[in-house]
Design a protein around this nucleic acid. Structure first.
Lengths: 335, 335
DNA sequence: CTGAAAGCGCTTACAG
DNA sequence: CTGAAAGCGCTTACAG
């Protein structure tokens, strides 16, 4: 009923536990007769080695598991990161423990404690807001920690981010180039570093051209809030002719609002973050795209490089963004 | 440098390992003075209990981890399942090891072996095609296994599926009700059980009304293939006035083809599986929607019920589908 | 080529 | 209230 152990196999095969261990780990130098006997016993008992127990004793004590802390495993950005890391991990024979933080710093800390308690060999963390200084313990204990999507606060570690400020600037320059002078900004929670950077990029682009900032709404976190914010913005005293929506869900909410007002072909829009089917909407949605696959692969690779013994100062890696024109961002301002 | 152990804490606090264990596990009956000393030592050394080691010895030997084998953690359906299971698991203090199979039976088996080797307390598997009989070992060893999305082959176990045949039938009846008599079918690999069921539902609906089946194309697995198949179908000798696309990516590929031909407002379409932004396309895409959140929650719950000792025969649970009219499925056939 | 002893970090089952 | 001994399932470090 209960699971067979290495000892059970040894007893049945009439050999010592150590010999079973040799067969299981394909160590050379075991008589063919014993290999056969052990193999038969393993088969008969349905024996599966307890990897957890072996890693407890094995030199190095690696568990061949890394912990991945994401915003939400179900959102397209997080899940693309996740998949990219899985592919890299798999090349190294490593499994992934994943969890969702939902922007909750306490949850982030809980997850990391849980993963650390399970002796993960490394961690990749897309941090919520707040401070990640508590991870110093891990780093000192030699567990590689890599941050992805957002830089950590209160700790120095390898980090993979995009250049949010430059990407946002690029988006707004694109709108300016199409004749817009009143460009509205809608962005995520100001507690999020990337949201602050994107707002800064928006301001940079306008300041550069001596253009006065348009209406700015921060702390927009859901589709619904974005929709309402756009309704208010367009009904306001200085309605923008173009919008820069600094996050995925915000972009979609804004599109819903423009649709409801039948202004989707009149008000230009560039969104930050690509999303599925953006090209199938009418107009197609112009975005500044991140490359979550590249980010995930690099983040996981950095963990493995550190595990392979690479030393040196932690570095911040910036993955470039790409502006993808699809229609909505190329709507000209008619004066 | 290296991680402190329970023994290190005991030494520093001047107590026995057992006492440290008591404090860590909040067992009652330890002098306050010793609790203080141990707590201080834990703090000083940055000690974190090795949960893996404790589960090795602990009665029951549970690892508070379940393994989740999905088609692809990055696809919206899989990742919604994943998130729903995470939420249930979290209520039980359990973490999730997740992996992607990509329709590869060998990969499925590998993943399950890896998870079993890590002593997961239970498994949720969205099986690839092929046979899952090899899981009998797990079941016999007392590890709960629950299948989700697709029924297993070669083994009896708790299963959570939708009624694919009824859902497909519903979709096609909807098209018939809008006057269509030539309804094309495009479906996924015939090696996939759900794809076969959906084709059967399509046939049921037509047979019921004495309508001759329209053009049928199976083994369409990618967006690109779907796009090409629709082009061929509409250029064929018996062009359909409506399409039933039996899977997510197939639906999207079909929409691309209709767009390219400017027939999206002329040819009716109902898709199986909902997808993000389906309501924002023009026309909105009518779908038969599954409820991955309900499926994931139920699947995870079944694992925990078994872990809690629930016995009884394994059961197949069918989650109902829902037809969501959004425009594309309500295009009337003009005769 | 093979195995007996010790130990990974922790908990169980006792004894005091 | 506290701790010494044994053991979870495996591997290391030896010895033969």
């Amino acid at each position: 009923m209960s699971r067979a152990t290495l000892r059970d196999v040894a007893l049945l095969a009439g050999v010592s536990p150590k010999t079973v261990s040799r067969v299981v780990n394909r160590e050379p130098g075991v008589t063919e007769a014993k290999v056969t006997a052990v193999t038969a016993a393993i088969e008969k008992l349905g024996y599966r080695p307890n990897f957890t127990a072996s890693s407890l004793r094995r030199a190095g004590g690696r568990t061949a598991t890394i912990g991945v802390v994401l915003e939400n495993v179900a959102n397209p950005f997080s899940s693309s990161l996740h998949r990219a890391m899985e592919d890299v991990a798999r090349e190294h024979g490593v499994s992934i423990l994943a969890g969702s933080v939902d922007e909750d710093p306490a949850r982030e800390r809980d997850l990391i404690n849980i993963f650390a308690g399970r002796q993960v060999d490394g961690l990749v963390v897309a941090p919520a807001s707040g401070n990640q200084g508590y991870l110093t313990t891990e780093l000192l204990a030699g567990t590689p920690v890599v941050f992805v999507d957002r830089p950590p606060v209160g700790i120095q570690a390898d980090t993979v981010v995009i250049d949010n400020r430059a990407g946002a600037r690029r988006a707004v320059e694109h709108l300016i180039a199409h004749g817009h002078h009143t460009i509205g900004y809608l962005g995520d929670l100001r507690s999020i570093a990337t949201a602050r950077d994107r707002l800064q990029g928006y301001r940079d682009a306008l300041a550069d051209q001596g253009i006065r900032p348009g209406p700015v709404v921060e702390d927009v976190h859901t589709e619904r809030e974005a929709e309402q914010a756009v309704h208010r913005m367009l009904a306001g005293s200085r309605p923008p002719t173009a919008l820069f929506t600094a996050q995925n869900l915000v972009t979609i909410g804004a599109i819903r609002a423009l649709r409801a007002l039948r202004r989707q072909h009149a008000v230009a829009l560039v969104g930050f973050d690509d999303f599925p089917l953006a090209d199938l909407l009418e107009p197609g949605v112009t975005v500044v795209a991140q490359d979550p696959t590249a980010m995930g692969r690099l983040a996981a690779s950095l963990v493995f490089r550190r595990l392979a013994g690479e030393s040196g100062e932690p570095a911040v890696h910036e993955i470039p963004t790409r502006l993808i024109p699809r229609g909505s961002g190329e709507i000209q301002n008619v004066v």
